[in-house]
Design a protein around this nucleic acid. Structure first.
Lengths: 119, 119
DNA sequence: TTCATATATGAATTACAATTCATATAAACA
DNA sequence: TGTTTATATGAATTGTAATTCATATATGAA
């Protein structure tokens, strides 16, 4: 495993839309699997699979409390890197590639909806 | 195209071993396609494909000089992000995942061999 | 114009990753 | 114990990306 292969693996692990959504939620604090699935409106098994991938790369760690399993980002510098890359991408207009979406700003499903409202 | 999709696309564009190798070479200055292929010991067409992908995401830009086409990173902050992620990955031992390689440090083909030695 | 050099491109193949679905495990509780 | 809730897992499918190969394009030189 070369240095670049490891780094690439790490970047690709972060570079998946659903995992980015998960990570952005986790930058604000730990969340359990069910919450993540509910907020992001995705299947629980899908979230579990993604969390497993993130954990495998040491990007998140988990903590069990009764039935629930809470996940959080392993290190604040990681959270910062994710935000930095987002800022950079926006400021430099990177990846406006792949046709369309010039000047528009959509934001559906980005994780800012209600939570902790039921139960 | 959501914000996360764009960011993910950007991160995955960087997150490929050969493209990382290319980018690391380019952090030290512009290079033409042939040089990159020679130094990395990969097919010229492969390098061209990867450069096209990077260009599509505005990560690199090109400049033609006679027959040769020179590529460079579009922005220094991008180069910094790449280095930052490398440092972070190493310091946090991220992505030691995927079995094996604990404690070893390989470095074959990472782009530090001779260049400009022929011609 | 013909040849050599440099780069790009498209099609085909292969490899890998995301998603879904069904189900397993395990804790809490009635 | 049986039931509900929460999470994990494996197999199957699908989608996407990397690589190779053959070839096109374009520039410069003989």
């Amino acid at each position: 495993m070369t240095a670049e292969e490891n780094q690439a693996r790490f970047l690709r692990c972060i570079g998946e839309p659903t995992r980015l959504q998960i990570l952005k939620l986790l930058t604000k604090g730990e969340r359990c699997v069910g919450e993540l699935a509910r907020v992001l409106n995705k299947e629980q098994s899908l979230i579990s699979h993604h969390l497993k991938a993130l954990k495998k790369c040491n990007i998140v760690k988990d903590r069990q409390e009764t039935q629930k399993v809470y996940y959080e980002i392993t290190n604040d510098r990681l959270a910062k890197l994710i935000i930095d890359s987002e800022v950079l991408m926006k400021e430099l207009s990177l990846c406006k590639c792949q046709e369309m979406n010039y000047g528009r700003e959509e934001n559906q499903g980005s994780g800012e909806e209600e939570i902790r409202s039921n139960s």
